[in-house]
Amino acid sequence: MGSAIKSVFTFVCGLVLVASTAKAAEPILGGIFPETKVPIQLFAEDSVINLELVADFNKFLKLPEKDTITKVPAKLIYFKDGTPQEINVNLSTRGESKQMFCQGFRPIRIYFNTQQNDLSLTPFQGISDDLKVATHCQGTGLIKDTDDNVQRNLREQTAYKMLEALGFMTLKTRTARITYKNLDGTVVAEALAFLLEPKSNMAKRYGLKHIRKVKADIIYAPEPENKIPFLLSTRFLMHTDVDHGGEHNTILLIREGESKAVTMVPYDFDLTGMVINSQYLGSAHAYKSWTLQNWGDDGEWFKKWTGGEFTSDAYRNQAYATAIYALTHKEAVQKVIDSSPVLDKSLMQERVNAFFSGIERAINEK
């Protein structure tokens, strides 16, 4: 560990010690908040949950590509001690970019009617919003775990877990094996998927609140120092399909009673460089091949970012402290990669190695 890293590491440890003795959910570093509540049951466990969705999939799979509003009645079935338990729900399709490459199956959003359903004794107890299902997106019948689209899905789920291991705020996930059935009981598809924690549930874990509706005449974006983890997160994943002002693929979080966000969190990693091995250029099917060369050097990126002419010393020191905070989680990130069900981990490993080596070199050259 270089001298620069050692000095900032000492600073970070001091901040962590202060945060651990604080009563409120004060940030350890700008934009990083410790959890104040445990996740709801669905996301507190890491085992694969077996589910069935029963609906008129003949209708659902034929909904227009851009129709994310139409809701189809369905039954969500989970198993308690081997016995199937039913919950009445509604389904809609979801996603904009996902619709570009989902043919023959659709990404799903599950709506719970809490007025009709008592979820208190179910795995979905405490869920505060609709539930996103990241599906295989292609094909019907039995979809093998080795299928390219399932593997792509698993890489996206691993990206969420890696970001969490990095020590930054993110949504939790839960692996699910889902059987999709028509109303007559015939199986439409069976595949591995993952469930994504609702944004409002994530906000509650950190003692914060999710800004649901962004009004055009209000600037919600947090102060620059509270966006530092967001910027490091998007670089880490090579996430270009994101708006740094907080309007696209970002979650704005506020404290109760306030109107300006205190931090922002990226999400929707299906088009990140770490997942698709390409740079998404912001329009349908527009990509640039991924290589270490055309992504640029992470160390040079970090030095340019922290050395900008409008960057204050306080902001620069905060960025270095946050980067060191991330570096101290390198082993945890590696464990996520090692335990990931993704078959080919070379892309994830290459990206992580490049990020950590580049950031560490930049800090030592300070």
Rank of each mutant, 00 (worst) to 15 (best):
L17P: 00
P73D: 14
D297Y: 02
I218K: 11
S283T: 15
I276D: 05
S7V: 05
V275L: 09
F57R: 06
I276V: 15
I254F: 02
M348K: 08
A321F: 06
E300Y: 03
E197K: 03
E164M: 03
E223Y: 07
D298K: 00
T175Y: 05
P341E: 12
A24K: 11
D145F: 05
Q138G: 05
T170E: 08
R255I: 02
K66I: 03
G358D: 12
V333Q: 06
I211A: 01
P266C: 04
Q279L: 13
V48M: 07
D147L: 02
A354T: 06
F105H: 12
G358R: 00
T311Y: 00
L347C: 07
R212F: 08
V18T: 12
I69A: 11
S20Y: 10
D344M: 04
T234A: 05
G358K: 01
S128N: 02
K366W: 04
E26F: 00
S289H: 07
N153E: 14
A332V: 01
L76T: 01
L253E: 03
F112S: 06
R109V: 15
D46H: 12
F101Y: 14
F112E: 09
V133D: 06
L327H: 04
C13H: 01
T272H: 01
E164K: 10
V352L: 07
M274A: 12
V187F: 04
A165I: 11
I337C: 06
Q279K: 13
R109E: 09
A134V: 15
N117K: 02
E365R: 11
L163P: 01
R235K: 15
E197Y: 04
F194D: 01
E65C: 02
E197M: 11
D56M: 02
L171F: 02
E86F: 02
E26Q: 07
V342I: 10
F168M: 08
A24Q: 14
R235V: 07
A321W: 01
C13F: 00
V8L: 09
A216P: 00
I359T: 05
S47N: 14
V275H: 06
K181H: 06
I110W: 05
V38K: 14
K172S: 13
S312H: 05
P222M: 02
R109K: 15
